[in-house]
């Protein structure tokens, strides 16, 4: 079998054992995590807005009121007009204009937000929607990816997890940056207090 022959060849060829290095827990950082997150997200084509919990609904209506079909993973927010949990086939999400998703935490150094299966009725949702709003608590921010993976290890995730940093984009035509390749054309992160 190929499995055995590949492993046998590897055992024969592999170099002498080299130790695995210890990873840094988190590099020391000077500066404001929130400011760093906002600055970086802007750089990658998204935007972050600091907002108090109570103002979320109003703000989304103001920003995205012109959109028709909105999905949300938080029943306490009152503007969703499609119940994605009752949909079986993810292809039926094709017409969704806006997805509003409460997520775990953000990473200041790269403007990424971590979300997992338990934040999603369908894995396709944050990709197939035309616009995307992610809500994270302002206080739960980590500085960099080392710290992020420490946190993921503690919290664990079951099936699928993704870091999302800004809206989908491409520069495949003459290196010109175009926002909105296959996924969302805009990405807004609410940092709640």
């Amino acid at each position: 079998m190929s499995r055995e022959s590949i492993l046998a060849q590897i055992r024969k060829s592999k170099p002498e054992l080299v130790g695995l290095p210890i990873l840094p827990e988190c590099h020391i950082v000077e500066g404001d995590l929130t400011e760093q997150f906002k600055k970086t997200l802007l750089l990658v084509g998204g935007q972050a807005i600091e907002i108090s919990e109570g103002d979320i609904e109003l703000h989304i209506k103001k920003m995205f009121g012109y959109l028709k079909l909105t999905a949300c993973n938080d029943g306490t927010l009152n503007f969703s007009n499609i119940d994605t949990c009752s949909i079986d086939d993810p292809r039926e999400l094709r017409d969704i204009d806006l997805a509003v998703l409460r997520c775990r935490f953000g990473v200041a150094e790269n403007g990424a937000v971590w979300l997992t299966d338990s934040d999603l009725s369908h894995r396709a949702l944050p990709f197939i929607t035309q616009h995307c709003v992610l809500i994270i608590p302002k206080n739960g921010m980590v500085w960099n990816m080392h710290e992020a993976y420490q946190r993921i290890k503690q919290e664990n995730y079951n099936g699928f997890g993704v870091f999302i940093s800004g809206p989908s984009k491409t520069a495949d035509i003459e290196q010109s940056l175009v926002i909105g390749a296959h996924g969302p054309k805009s990405l807004t992160v609410f940092l709640t207090t």
Partner: peptide, 15 residues
């Protein structure tokens, strides 16, 4: 030159 790719997807199990 991006600080991270837009999507870093972790697949553990199938949906």
């Amino acid at each position: 030159g991006q600080p991270v790719t837009t999507y870093t997807s972790h697949y553990l199990t199938a949906q």
